[in-house]
């Protein structure tokens, strides 16, 4: 695990993510349409702030690092079910929230945009 942690940390450092204001992880367990709408909403909210969207293996590696502890408040994890144990799908399946509400009011809604 130690080697992996160092690898995950290196992704953060090599991409100078500390210099960013917001980092959105796009995860491919969500469908393409969901990810597109999430990216659009993210770009609309982020304005002129420094931001980056990360996809693919690097996104999953940063997600893994985040499952050891919350090492930053800049990371936005674009998923209804990840990290493991996230229960946003429950709100969708019970019919008390739409996917757009989950994106705008919850995944992006808890982010401080100032």
């Amino acid at each position: 695990m130690e080697l992996q942690i160092e690898q995950w940390k290196a992704i953060w450092q090599d991409n100078s993510l500390d210099d960013m204001d917001y980092i959105l992880l796009i995860l491919h367990n969500e469908n393409h349409d969901f990810n597109n709408r999430l990216c659009m909403a993210f770009n609309a909210k982020v304005g002129n702030k420094r931001k980056v969207i990360i996809e693919g293996q690097e996104a999953y590696d940063l997600l893994a690092l985040y499952t050891i502890y919350a090492f930053t408040d800049k990371l936005i994890i674009g998923s209804l079910s990840l990290p493991h144990g996230r229960k946003l799908n429950n709100l969708l399946q019970c019919g008390i929230a739409t996917e757009d509400e989950l994106i705008n009011d919850i995944i992006l809604g808890g982010v401080k945009w100032n």
Partner: peptide, 14 residues
């Protein structure tokens, strides 16, 4: 309880 779960954020608007 979980920092990884966001369900409490639902209360921000609903």
């Amino acid at each position: 309880y979980l920092y990884t779960d966001l369900i409490i954020q639902y209360l921000n608007k609903h």
